[in-house]
Simulated assay, not measured.
Amino acid sequence: MAELITASNMQAPDEFYQQLNSLYQALDDDQSRDVNARLILLLSNHIGDQQVLSQALKIAGEHVKD
């Protein structure tokens, strides 16, 4: 069974954060939601493993505040 990696696993996290931040700076709320959806779908497709994706959804949902 594949497991979701939750420990730091990025080669250049600061660079990625800067790129992500730059992407969103000029976007309005609707554009940000569109980019979020596209990014989620692209990365989900890259991962491809339904068990890993289900684990990610579960963990992400646990941190939603009412």
Rank of each mutant, 00 (worst) to 15 (best):
P13N: 05
Q18G: 09
M1P: 09
I40D: 09
D14G: 10
Q51G: 08
M1Y: 06
F16T: 09
E3I: 01
N45Q: 14
I47G: 01
D29T: 13
D28L: 11
S22T: 07
H46T: 11
N21T: 02
L23W: 07
H63N: 13
L42G: 01
L53G: 11
A7R: 09
E62S: 13
A2T: 04
Y24A: 02
L43M: 09
I40E: 12
N21D: 13
A12M: 06
I59A: 10
Q51E: 10
I59T: 12
I5S: 01
Q50I: 07
V52E: 02
A7P: 00
R38H: 10
Q25L: 11
S32I: 11
N45M: 03
D34G: 10
Q25I: 00
R38D: 15
L20M: 10
H63C: 02
Q11S: 13
N9W: 10
D49N: 09
A56M: 04
Y17A: 11
V35H: 11
G48F: 07
H63P: 00
L4V: 07
L27Y: 05
Y24C: 03
L43S: 08
A2C: 10
Q55C: 04
H46R: 11
S22F: 02
L43Y: 11
L20D: 02
H46V: 08
Q31V: 02
E15I: 15
